[in-house]
């Protein structure tokens, strides 16, 4: 096994290359995918040609619609939405069409497609280019939602998403794109619906998504110096959700904290908290602590942006609150 370290961007691009070589039904469309704004699709056109790497006019809804139509008729499209925020432009197609026709046709139609979408706050992009909207896709039926936090996870999840027969939203946090991580040379897949324990601990179960996984790990290091051992779990996909891994951890810690960069109100944390209240009630020794972005438009100034988004300090405090060590 090699110890190669590559960036998140390279990992995603490798997933595309491998899957496009493997299956000629796979193609990519989106705005400027030939050049590749964030690099995940750059240079693919050279190998796969303009028929399989297609620049679209500036219209997210029709582009996602085209992906749905192509997916229903035998291809396996990947459509890129350049910024997560722009998913709302295509929300009608994603929510009302892509996720529903397999069911409505009683299985006669399949919609095997991926919506690849860089998202999240990186400082300086401001309103309209910085939101984390993954939780908005928990609500419509029929969709799967992946939120990788490392290059390794990104590659393995994207390959599975491309091979899945359902529409999969694939969120790439822009703060992670340039980060490096261990990715083996050998081919591997990560199934959708399998959480990863990023750090073991016995005192508190801390569920974190996407870019907040790293903040959670740093917070856990700090808390460890105070004798508090935090278990950090990255669910990796919100739908399907690996409830078992989280529950197993909770049966050890009895304390649950959930952090995401998406908005707290009605977010993934709200869903997980509801699951905890319904299904894991007897394993809660304290109220669930839920962290997310405040319900305000994301402002431009880096100082204001940081004030909206959960920080490492916020996570430390939430863990202490969970343990009754801070009100």
């Amino acid at each position: 096994m090699s110890h190669r370290r590559i960036t998140f961007i390279q990992a995603v691009r490798e997933a595309f290359q491998e899957e496009m070589r493997r299956d000629e039904r796979v193609f990519i469309l989106g705005q400027d995918v030939r050049a590749g704004i964030f690099g995940t699709t750059s240079k693919l056109v050279g190998e796969f040609g303009e028929d399989r790497v297609i620049n679209t006019p500036i219209c997210e809804s029709a582009s996602v619609g085209a992906a749905v139509g192509a997916a229903m008729t035998g291809l396996r499209p990947v459509v890129q939405i350049m910024f997560g925020d722009f998913n709302y432009l295509a929300m009608e197609i994603t929510a009302n069409q892509a996720g529903q026709w397999h069911y409505l046709s009683d299985g006669a139609l399949k919609v095997p497609m991926v919506i690849e979408t860089p998202s999240g706050a990186r400082g300086g992009a401001g309103y309209g280019h910085s939101q984390s909207l993954e939780a908005a896709f928990i609500l419509p039926p029929g969709l799967k939602v992946a939120v990788p936090s490392t290059p390794y996870d990104a590659k393995g999840l994207l390959k599975s998403a491309i091979r899945d027969d359902n529409p999969v939203l694939f969120f790439e946090h822009r703060r992670l794109l340039t980060q490096r991580g261990h990715v083996p040379e050998e081919e591997y897949l990560i199934p959708l619906g399998q959480a990863d324990i990023k750090r073991e601990g016995k005192d508190v179960t801390l569920v974190a998504l996407s870019a907040t996984v790293q903040k959670a790990l740093s917070a856990a290091e700090r808390l460890s110096q105070q004798g508090i051992e935090v278990e950090v779990i990255d669910p990796r996909t919100l739908v399907p959700l690996d409830k078992e891994t989280i529950f197993k951890s909770l049966q050890k810690t009895y304390h649950l904290v959930v952090v995401e960069e998406g908005r707290r109100r009605g977010g993934f944390g709200a869903e997980l908290t509801a699951i905890a209240a319904e299904e894991w009630f007897d394993t809660l020794d304290a109220p669930v602590q839920r962290l997310g972005t405040i319900s305000a438009p994301l402002p431009y100034s880096p100082v204001l942006e940081a004030a909206c988004i959960p920080s490492e300090d916020d996570i430390v405090r939430a863990v202490l609150r969970s343990l009754g060590q801070e009100e």
Binding site: G65, A66, A67, V68, G69, L104
Partner: peptide, 30 residues
Amino acid sequence: LKVDVGIMPLPSSLGSEFGMSVGAALSSKL
């Protein structure tokens, strides 16, 4: 809807099929 004779989805939100028909045509071209 009757997929085996080529009758494709009729979205309740009329007009959402425009993109889908582009996709179906793109697919048959590819």
